[in-house]
Design a protein around this nucleic acid. Structure first.
Lengths: 357, 357
DNA sequence: CCTCTAAGAGACACCGGTGTCAAAAGCAAG
DNA sequence: CTTGCTTTTGACACCGGTGTCTCTTAGAGG
């Protein structure tokens, strides 16, 4: 024990020159009390326009910016949005993050990013500690942990607003932003059917994931609508990873009667299937059509470019932020409530799909 | 003006049940003053073991966690690390981020992520406002903005520690974590030469990027060492994007005497070159060897899997965090200073390289 | 013109920690 | 047992805002 004292105590000497103006300076300049300035900052209703203008002018003159730490202490709430995620797809996380940042750009809020470990049995404790310490205004939950009801309950308990992002609406729509994956998968698979494909393989996502279930539902719907059978042999397990795509490709393409098209629950696995096809000399798309899901960078980086479903993830970030903190973004709460919380995914056609020959 | 007062004022009612213990509770229980508790928390040297133990026991009994907002106010410093980035490669950013989080996992610190816009002429003002508002302990600068000297100067001015991440050491080694890209590129290109390649193309990174310059230097060195010429026609411009790889591939592969190998300054562009080769019926690696840089997910998702240079980005995140805040991570400052700030990149051989035939 | 009422502004305590400086305690030497 | 010094501890102000309650003031009504 008895460790050396930390040296961050030292550099306090830099306090020499330009300190930032405080609320007291503003109050003095405007000739009002600091509480009045506080009212202006927080847009209280009980202020005459005259007073408000005087204060605003003083604020502008001094270039005053309220100290977020002091506000956080007094409000017992940090002006932060926490982004909780355990999504393995970096691009997804970053796109969403970018959307959130777009939305809060001109606000007082900042974004705190917090990866969590879904597997850990201390997950809930970790998150609780995090939320109690950081006290963010709200939390955004990205899939797959957004599907964890305990987390939502925890936010509720701690008085932290939250919005869950998912592939389909959850119980309480106000706390949820999602996309219509199922419909779009059905649409994409419908295209395959139109192109004459009759034996269509499906590479599953991980068991227990809502996103995976939704995508599979869409697949079922499309085939059912076309009156096509769903033989077990055409379904391969998967976990959203490239290697699972390899395994699935090996399995499906060595069937006695291999599929002429394969729908993969995400792009990475589609890339894996495509590699196997290349290795076996199966031409894509001439002999095998492949569709993925996510429209990740991989989709355009592989050859031929992958037809896939684009998840409006950045837009969902914007929408989620707006739903979470409309009052900080100067959004009319009524109109925020009216905004749809289900955003459209779209089927992006590239070069990996062709008519069955 | 005169907007409706924000409704975040309202949910103050939740203060009903279990409030968290404060430093006063601890002081009362331990029978000391709050300042003494503060000293224990901050590991002051001037405390007897007896007092310390009493306080620590009280802290443990109450499950006391110091309120970060209050500390931030008193310290005039938030216990945060800011990650400033404008790197277009999501995987890179997220891996680095993960490394930083690994490093600070058991500390009091949290991570604030801040994408910035390199192009913006308000860049410096934006960052200044951000740093003045959030007052992080330190900032980590990811390339390419880590190459901006003005930003480093700004951190210096504001008393914010900083560490710049780069592809080669910058002026002040203490503020820099980097990898030895040049050497490893030279090694990789050396392998091509050993395999009999004599005409080797090079796809450049964006002009003015240090990382791009380092990679090109390594390329030059390798060819110079082998006594090979460097004809202009074998150099194609690029900007680290897939489409630039397409253009470069078109240009290089339609030369009267096309190269038998191409080194691309990053994986995305390598994927582009490979697409062009596929399109032209040029077999990879039999007729054309390709090497990339980054070891991004793309490298393994394309077919054939790309030989590339792996940048130890996550490890660099850990190292950068340790260099930035050794005192918060219970790292002996001396040993931290002795840690090397240049980490080894490695050449990863996959299936996109073969002997010239 | 005076009174009553409600909107608007201010005084002061407080959020939960840390800095400063003086007082108390510990200890060796006289 | 004092004295004189150093090491530990505590009292109190302060960081920069907000909550509460009171006082002031302006406008409506008598």
């Amino acid at each position: 024990m008895h460790r050396k004292s930390r040296n961050f105590m030292a550099p306090r000497t830099r306090e020499k020159s330009g300190k930032q103006p405080t609320i007291n300076d503003v109050a003095a300049l405007a000739g009002v009390s600091k509480k009045t300035v506080s009212r202006v900052i927080n847009r209280s209703e009980f202020i005459t326009d005259k007073t408000r203008q005087a204060v605003e002018q003083a604020i502008k003159m001094l270039g005053f910016v309220p100290n977020p730490q002091a506000r956080a202490l007094a409000f017992r709430r940090n002006f932060l949005i926490a982004l909780l995620h355990d999504n393995p797809n970096a691009q997804t996380v970053l796109n969403f993050q970018q959307g959130v940042l777009d939305a809060i750009k001109d606000s007082d809020l900042a974004l705190l990013v917090r990866p969590v470990d879904r597997g850990s049995d201390r997950l809930l404790d970790d998150v609780r500690t995090f939320l109690e310490k950081q006290r963010p205004i709200g939390a955004l939950l990205l899939p797959p942990i957004s599907e964890n009801d305990d987390l939502a309950a925890l936010c509720e308990e701690l008085g932290v607003r939250y919005v869950r992002v998912g592939s389909a609406p959850l119980d309480d729509v106000r706390h949820c932003v999602s996309s219509n994956d199922r419909e779009v998968v059905a649409e994409a698979v419908g295209k395959l059917v139109e192109l004459g494909h009759r034996r269509i393989g499906f590479v599953r996502g991980p068991v227990g994931f809502r996103s995976a279930a939704e995508r599979e539902k869409g697949f079922h719907e499309a085939l059912a609508a076309a009156g096509l059978p769903l033989p077990d042999e055409l379904f391969a397990p998967g976990n959203y990873r490239y290697t699972a795509g390899i395994d699935a490709g090996e399995a499906l393409l060595s069937l006695a009667e291999p599929p002429t098209a394969i729908f993969c629950s995400n792009d990475e696995m589609a890339a894996g299937v495509m590699s196997v096809a290349h290795g076996k000399g199966i031409a894509v798309p001439a002999d095998l059509s492949i569709i993925g899901f996510d429209d990740s960078p991989t989709a355009t980086h592989i050859w031929p470019a992958l037809s896939t479903v684009r998840w409006p993830i950045r837009e969902m970030g914007i929408r989620a932020a707006r739903a979470l903190v409309p009052d900080f973004l100067d959004i009319n709460t009524r109109s925020a409530d009216e905004e749809s919380h289900v955003l459209p995914s779209t089927f992006v056609e590239r070069q990996s799909v062709a008519a069955r020959r």
